[in-house]
């Protein structure tokens, strides 16, 4: 079944093209990696998929429906730096936020919502930290908490922006294990990832972009040298100009 359908997507910032005619179709039960060099528009693509930024042209559909009707089907784990870490909120209450969309206006989270949030914290191995203030955690622990919040949303799709940046190896392992479990349950996972390391083992499918679509398909098919060269060509020639030896 098609989970994500993107056709002819264009996005620009103040007239500068950021995403140029990108199309792809992903089935449910897939871990899709969005990969490309710096400035390739990976985060922009993810944000436009979430309709956090306006698109210029193109179609974005989830399960055959437009984004506005499917907001409650997608959970988002933003880059860690986007937040005020001194905010007076505990780890557990951060995860409880994940239950808000289901509650709707005027309703307060109840005991069962808090228990569900605690359960999600347990899943990411952070239940001992529930009472801590959110800024008292390490980078990897913070990322696990935000994954827990996304889990609390109980959505069909999960979008993560650079989840493995600046975190410890065991947190990375915990996160990828959980994502694989979700994939096996038929959920669709989209991950923006900046380096090619582990890309083949983490992702089922890869969308290799550099403003335009370079290649899309099964991970091992996309990660061919000619595709990589094409996507990273700008940076390669830049490195050559600096005299960096690539062989």
């Amino acid at each position: 079944m098609t989970a994500i359908n993107v056709k002819g997507l264009y996005v620009s910032y103040f007239g500068n093209e950021a995403i140029n005619n990108i199309s792809f179709q992903t089935n449910t039960g897939t871990i899709l990696g969005i990969i490309g060099p710096n400035g390739a528009g990976k985060s922009t693509l993810l944000k436009s998929l979430l309709s956090l930024i306006p698109t210029d042209r193109g179609v974005i559909e989830y399960y055959g429906k437009p984004v506005k009707e499917t907001r409650n089907k997608i959970a988002y784990v933003p880059q860690r730096s986007d937040i005020d870490w001194d905010f007076p909120i505990t780890v557990l209450d951060t995860v409880v936020i994940g239950t808000y969309p289901k509650l709707g206006l005027f309703k307060r989270p109840k005991q069962k919502d808090r228990e569900w949030a605690y359960h999600c914290l347990e899943k990411v191995g952070m239940s001992d930290f529930g009472k801590r203030q959110i800024g008292e955690l390490s980078g990897g622990q913070q990322q696990r908490v935000f994954l827990a919040r996304a889990l609390a949303q109980e959505t069909e799709m999960l979008f993560l922006d650079e989840p493995f940046v600046g975190i410890d190896a065991s947190s990375e392992q915990t996160i990828i294990t959980i994502l694989r479990e979700l994939r096996n349950l038929g959920k669709t996972i989209v991950i923006v990832h900046h380096d090619l390391n582990k890309a083949a083992s983490y992702f089922d499918e890869i969308l290799l972009i550099n403003k335009e679509l370079v290649s899309y398909g099964k991970a091992q098919d996309v990660l061919k040298p000619n595709n990589i060269t094409k996507a990273y060509s700008g940076q390669l020639s830049f490195l050559k100009e600096l005299g960096v030896n690539l062989s």
């Binding site: 956090l52 988002y76 936020i97 808000y100 919040r149």
Partner: peptide, 9 residues
Amino acid sequence: FDPTIAATF
């Protein structure tokens, strides 16, 4: 606390 997440909601 988290305007980005609020927007996705």
